[in-house]
Design a protein around this nucleic acid. Structure first.
Length: 563
RNA sequence: GCGGCCGUCGUCUAGCCUGGACUAGGACGUCAGCCUUCCAAGCUGAUGAUCCCGGGUUCAAAUCCCGGCGGCCGCACCA
């Protein structure tokens, strides 16, 4: 048995036993891809979310703010965003061996034609007229059907309208972009973050919390003006180093290269400098989860989502297997433009010039009285025709000296030159999206920090994401020690620490339990405490103890947990 | 959907092939008590399983047969 499998097995065992996570709806047999997070798990998960908020939002609070939008999303929104169409894969099943294939991919492969975007019946037609057979068993293929990864529902009673569970929180951000923009600083760059649940009806969810059907996502949509000077706070990612494997390197089988974010920005490997910044921030976050072996891997055009111009997945290496913990996508103006097209609403941003530009403009006026004098009733009908034209059409007719009803309009036009002041222009911001799956962070942190020491399970979580900051134990179940311990619990709780208290069972058992859920420190009150007011502090990873006077306990905890 | 493997106390499992003394055994856990001056210690007791569900064969089914449900792994798919 490999160590990875062994580890995963032990971690899932601990998860069940200690309340980290387990399959949902177990008493009904369970449903693949749905998981409950237990009491200890929720503590860890909440701290991971807090860590993300700290690093992505709080440290960038001059750039980023957070919103919350609904899970239920009307069909029109996801139609516009491309999810209704692109989340639906055309599939075809072999009637003989029952293998399922992507119908469009199969057609493209066999006929060397572009089959993308073809309708289901078109694909069925192509497959039957070209007698395409199952590539595995040469069996007859059935009709092309679709598989949609969106969870569908109905909004409202009666027939209602179709709705979907959001597959990403991003669309709620795009659709509310204008409001957030207007209600805040009305300037770019602007990051809008959202943490929330999403649903994706995966064909086959696997690997515990790695591929779920209903999970929590932490996303940032970072809006910026491509023509504006980038003013990037590199000092916030100064200490970060990121490993990058781009497409070329991947094709040539090379190893990832290491960069500082600002170096990557000018390396030509990223579509925009901001990409490098947010990759740096993401890297910082992953390291805070205690994960050291991570690198960014560029996705090929086929692998990318429909909205993405460039995507880097943040891969985490756990005992030799790479798992995607995050993706950073350059979405361009895809989403805002799509929603503008669909709704006709203006989602552009007015970009003010530093100094207003003056533009010389020709204003064309038609001398209507001259026309009527020259042609009478015919002139009136010409005027009517001209008035129906747009400015541009009229300009074209005048400048190219074209005739309307055999009259050269230019001869009856007056061209006035005027100056117009333009103080800015309307642009559609571009978007960079770093997004993290919370449960993946949670799960990978667990696997990553899991150790076995003397056949005991230890979760060496970084203190920041541990479920409790410390445990307090009376060494023995004696009233004076219990009283003193509870006093101590009060003291540290009042200082804001999360404390785990336990008095039953042998001390060794309690230490073991604390280690297993990753509590970094354990304070033990022993008989000596009653004499000299000192306690021992035990380290989860080394099992070493130091004796500290209770008066110094808060200071010592501060050093041990944050120092 | 397909293929392989699997489904017994909270957990891990014995038993299944070869049906009967299985009233389903153990270990761990949990709880209570005793003991205990620092690492899952010891002792005592308690707790806990309609053997995944339904049907069939049989005098008799956890065990054999059929169907279903669910899980894991692989395939395909995957933001």
């Amino acid at each position: 048995m490999s160590t990875v499998e062994d580890k995963v097995e032990r971690v899932t065992g601990v998860a069940l036993k200690r309340g980290l996570f387990w399959p949902s709806f177990e008493i009904y047999g369970g449903v693949a891809g749905l998981y409950d997070i237990g009491p200890v798990g929720v503590r860890i998960k909440n701290r991971i979310v807090k860590l993300w908020r700290d690093i992505v939002i709080r440290e960038n609070d001059d750039l980023v703010m957070e919103v919350e939008t609904p899970i239920i999303t009307p069909e029109a929104v996801l139609k516009a965003s491309g999810h209704v169409d692109h989340f639906t894969d055309p599939v075809v099943e072999c009637m003989q061996c029952h293998r399922v294939f992507r119908a469009d991919h199969l057609v493209e492969e066999k006929l060397k034609i572009n089959a993308e975007g073809l309708a289901v019946n078109e694909l069925t037609q192509i497959i039957s007229t070209n007698k395409i057979k199952c590539p595995y068993c040469d069996g007859e293929l059935g009709p092309v059907t679709t598989f949609n990864l969106l969870f569908k529902t109905i909004i409202g009673p009666y027939s209602g309208s179709t709705g979907y569970m959001r597959p990403e929180t991003a669309q709620g951000i795009f659709t509310s972009f204008k409001r957030v923009f207007e209600s805040s600083r009305e300037s770019l760059p602007l990051g809008i973050a959202q943490i929330g649940r999403v649903g994706r009806n995966e064909i086959s969810p696997r690997q515990n919390l790695i591929r779920m059907r209903d999970f929590t996502i932490m996303e940032l949509e970072f809006f910026f003006d491509t023509s504006q000077k980038r003013n990037i706070p590199w000092e916030r990612v100064e200490k970060v180093k990121i490993k990058v494997l781009d497409l070329d390197m991947k094709r040539q089988g090379e190893k990832p290269n290491e960069y500082k974010p600002h170096e990557l920005a000018t390396s030509g490997k990223v579509l925009d400098e901001w990409m490098a910044y947010w990759m740096g921030v993401s890297q910082k976050f992953v390291e805070k989860l205690g994960i050291k072996n991570s690198y960014f891997e560029e996705k090929s055009p086929e692998e990318r989502a429909h909205y993405s111009k460039q995507t880097f997945d943040l891969m985490v290496d756990i005992n030799g297997t790479s798992v995607e913990i995050s993706g950073i996508a350059y979405r361009g103006d895809y989403d805002l433009s799509a929603h503008m097209n669909a709704t006709g609403k203006d989602l552009t941003v007015f970009k003010r010039y530093d100094t207003p530009k003056t533009i010389k403009k020709d204003i064309i006026l038609i001398d209507k009285s001259k026309l009527i004098k020259a042609f009478g009733e015919r002139g009136k009908s010409i005027i009517e025709k001209l008035s129906r034209m747009t400015k541009d059409e009229l300009e074209g007719i005048v400048l190219s000296r074209k005739a309307v009803d055999d009259v050269i309009i230019a001869e009856y036009a007056i061209i006035n030159q005027t100056e117009e002041k333009v103080s800015g222009e309307r642009i559609v911001p571009h978007v960079i999206e770093p997004s993290f799956g919370v449960e993946r962070c949670f799960y990978l942190s667990l696997i990553n920090s899991f150790r076995i020491k003397e056949n005991r399970n230890i979760l060496s979580l970084p203190p920041e994401i541990a479920p409790f900051d410390l445990a307090v134990f009376p060494l023995l179940e004696r009233q004076p020690l219990i009283d003193k311990s509870k006093e101590l619990v009060r003291l540290v709780k009042d200082s804001g620490y999360e404390v785990f208290y336990d008095e039953s069972g042998s001390i060794g058992k309690r230490y073991a339990r604390a280690d297993e859920i990753g509590i970094p420190l354990a304070i033990t009150v022993d008989p000596q405490t009653l004499d000299d007011n000192t306690v021992t502090i035990r380290n989860r990873d080394t099992w070493e103890q130091v004796r500290v006077h209770v008066n110094n306990i808060l200071m010592t905890l501060g050093e041990l947990l944050h120092g």
